[in-house]
C-alpha cells in the first residue's frame, strides 16, 4: 500500500523531469546532427573543433573561471562576517534583495555608472586618477558579472557556516589550535559543500552569459552563449547552435561531477 502511494506521488516528478529535462536535452542532441539544409550530418561537431569555436570555448571558460574565483574570494569572508553579526537574517536579506531586480535593468544601470560621464569616472576624477574607459572592457564585464552572481555564492556558504556547530570551535580553542589551524582544519572542511554548490551555481550560468557580453563588454568578450544566440536567431543554423549547446551540457556535467558527486571521506 505504502509503496503504491509512493509511486503515485512520483508521477508528477517523473513527468516533469521527462518533459522539461530529458526531452529538451534529447531534442538539442537530435538537432545537433542536422546541417542548415536539414540533412543528417556530423559536420557540426567537426566545425566545433575549428580554431574559431575552440578559442571561443577557451575564452568562455576563462571568464567563467575568473567570475567564479572572484565571487568566491568576496563571498566567503562576507558570509563569515554575516554569521557573526547580530541581525544576520536581515543583513542576508539586504544582500539578496538586488538579485530580485531584473538583470537587464541592472545592466543598463551599469552602462550609466561606468560611462564616460558616469558616477565611477567622476569619482576617479575627484580622487585625481582621471577618467578612464571603464565601459566595454574586461574589467567592467567581470565586475558586473560578479555583482550579479555574488548572492548565489554567498547563500550556500552562509548556510554552511551558519550550521557549523559552535562547540566544535570551542573544542579547537580548548585543545590549543591557532585561529588559522581552526579555520583550515575545521571550518573550511565543514563548509566545503557550501563552497561547492556556490561554485556550481555561479560557474555554470556564467559559461553561457550572452546579454552582458554585448551590453557591458560591447562584444569584446565573445562566449559560447553569444554564438548560440546568433545561430538560433540570425543564421537559423539550429544544428550548429545545438552542437555548441551539447558541449555546454557536457561541460556542466563534468563540473557537477568534479564538485558535487564526490562524497567527502569520513
Amino acid at each position: 500500500m505504502e509503496n503504491k502511494t509512493r509511486t503515485l506521488y512520483m508521477i508528477p516528478y517523473i513527468g516533469w523531469i521527462i518533459l522539461f529535462v530529458v526531452a529538451p536535452i534529447a531534442l538539442v542532441v537530435y538537432y545537433s546532427f542536422f546541417d542548415i539544409h536539414g540533412n543528417f550530418t556530423v559536420g557540426n561537431y567537426g566545425k566545433f573543433f575549428t580554431p574559431v569555436y575552440l578559442k571561443m570555448a577557451i575564452s568562455s571558460f576563462w571568464y567563467a573561471f575568473l567570475i567564479t574565483i572572484i565571487s568566491l574570494a568576496a563571498a566567503y569572508p562576507t558570509a563569515y562576517l554575516l554569521t557573526k553579526t547580530k541581525h544576520k537574517q536581515l543583513w542576508l536579506l539586504l544582500i539578496i534583495v538586488p538579485s530580485w531586480v531584473n538583470l537587464l535593468l541592472k545592466a543598463y544601470a551599469f552602462i550609466g555608472i561606468f560611462g564616460a560621464h558616469g558616477a565611477a569616472n567622476q569619482f576617479l576624477d575627484i580622487i585625481g586618477i582621471g577618467t578612464k574607459q571603464l565601459l566595454f572592457t574586461d574589467f567592467s564585464f567581470v565586475f558586473v558579472s560578479v555583482y550579479i552572481f555574488i548572492p548565489f555564492m554567498i547563500l550556500p556558504i552562509f548556510n554552511a557556516l551558519d550550521n557549523l556547530n559552535p562547540s566544535l570551535l570551542d573544542a579547537t580553542k580548548d585543545l590549543g589550535a591557532s585561529k588559522w589551524t581552526t579555520f583550515r582544519r575545521v571550518i573550511l572542511p565543514l563548509t566545503l559543500n557550501g563552497v561547492k554548490s556556490g561554485i556550481q551555481v555561479v560557474f555554470i550560468p556564467s559559461l553561457s552569459l550572452f546579454m552582458l557580453t554585448r551590453l557591458i563588454a560591447g562584444n569584446r568578450v565573445i562566449t559560447l552563449g553569444t554564438a548560440i544566440e546568433q545561430h538560433f536567431l540570425v543564421t537559423q543554423d539550429w544544428g550548429m547552435g545545438s552542437t555548441i549547446a551539447v558541449f555546454l551540457i557536457i561541460a556542466m556535467f563534468l563540473i557537477m561531477a568534479l564538485t558535487g558527486f564526490r562524497r567527502r571521506g569520513a
Binding site: 539544409h37 574559431v52 571561443m56 575564452s59 569584446r220 565573445i222 540570425v234 543564421t235 537559423q236 543554423d237
Partner: peptide, 20 residues
Amino acid sequence: GREHLAYYNDLFLEFKMYRK
C-alpha cells in the same frame, strides 16, 4: 539564401573574435 547568410554570419563571428 541560408548558405550564403551562414557564411556572412561566420565571418562576422570571426571578426568579433578577432578583436581579442
